[in-house]
Amino acid sequence: MKARNLLVALLALVALVAVGCGGSSDEPGGGGGATGSSSSSGGGGGKTNLSLVAYSTPQVVYDEVIPEFQKTAQGKDVGFKTSFGASGDQSRAVEAGLPADVVSFSTEPDMTRLVDAGLVDAGWNAGPNKGLVTTSLVAFVVRPGNPKNIRTWDDLLKPGIQVLTPNPFTSGAAKWNLLAAYGQAADGGKDPQAGLDYVSKLIKDHVKVQDKSGREALQSFVGGQGDVLLSYEYEATTAQKKGEKVDYVLPDDTIKINIDIAKTKDAPPAAQSFLDYVLSKPAQEKFADWGYRPVNQEVLDANADKFPTPPGLFTIEDLGGWSKVNDEMFDIEKGSIAKIEEDAGVSTAK
């Protein structure tokens, strides 16, 4: 326990230094650190400063959304400090003292950690958008032209196929990936053992490397490792938009990913203004442009052709909800998937 507390404190210190220094290490081809950051200030001298702490992937979107917010009446005097990194690391850093006014994570347990710490209101997900800023799906990111003809989950288990997915004990993306793998084999949770058997075979026989975050896993794939990357649909579309040579496949059976956002309890009023803007049509269109499924219904309807619904789509609620799933599958002492990872020699340290 003392070692864990020391690790959390060190995470917060590293994140604080990164925010203070500015710059970014989370872009593909960049420094590759778990926590990147950038700074910008609003017009009129930045009378209010907001700290946005988020998981790694949507940095490209916020780099566009923040300047647009600063052009509005509500945002013209608002400056920003931002920090992006692996979702679990970011959540633990805020818990340990990293300043944050708005937080966005890729799994609900990372937000729950801050609720339990008294930093985020327990009703953070009670509004019309249920605390979501976007959604996505777990997809197969493949080489151009899909030379291994990877279409289904069974294809991932073919001899010689190498699969990349990050470490679920640091990455929210990894949890979603493994829940998608589990859920499709478990018939949406109806046959738990079949789901665990599939995850075990996938990890032990086909996953050789588990990076710290979804963004690092993408960098490894783009760098030439593996035949297929399990990742968010929008990781693939973002990579394509940046000129990376990748294709992607949406399997018929996959899980809907919920991306959470909230303000912290002590955040200034400008934090709510920013949240409102992030959910507005102009900002949601920015998310849609990068391949994120908008939660603004008008924007989602306008992009319906871009975001098809797979016939076998299931949700975290179908699997029992995050509280049940996180405890039964990812608890480092008793979780079924944690045991599979441990047996495969993967670090379960957070």
Rank of each mutant, 00 (worst) to 15 (best):
V278R: 11
E342C: 14
L196C: 03
V60S: 01
G160M: 04
G224M: 12
A302N: 13
L229H: 05
R113N: 02
K242S: 13
G36N: 04
D305M: 04
S106Y: 05
N129I: 04
S56K: 00
D301L: 08
R92T: 01
G291H: 08
D121E: 13
G243F: 03
S231I: 01
A174V: 04
K306I: 10
A3T: 08
H206W: 00
W322I: 05
Q74Y: 04
E328W: 02
R293D: 12
F274Q: 11
I203P: 09
G123Y: 01
K350R: 15
W124N: 00
S24T: 15
N177Q: 12
K286Q: 15
S37R: 06
P58V: 08
D253G: 04
I150R: 03
T309Q: 13
K241Q: 09
G189E: 13
V209A: 10
T315M: 02
V207F: 08
I255V: 14
V94A: 07
P282D: 02
L119I: 09
K281I: 01
G97V: 14
P128F: 04
K350N: 14
F80N: 14
A9T: 06
D227K: 00
Q272P: 03
F84C: 10
R92Y: 02
T72V: 11
V222K: 07
N5T: 13
R143L: 07
K158H: 01
G226V: 03
G85C: 02
E233L: 12
G291I: 01
Q284S: 09
N258A: 10
D197R: 05
A86R: 00
D253Y: 03
H206V: 02
N146K: 01
D276M: 05
G188V: 03
N177V: 07
G20V: 08
E233T: 07
W322L: 11
A122F: 03
Y292W: 08
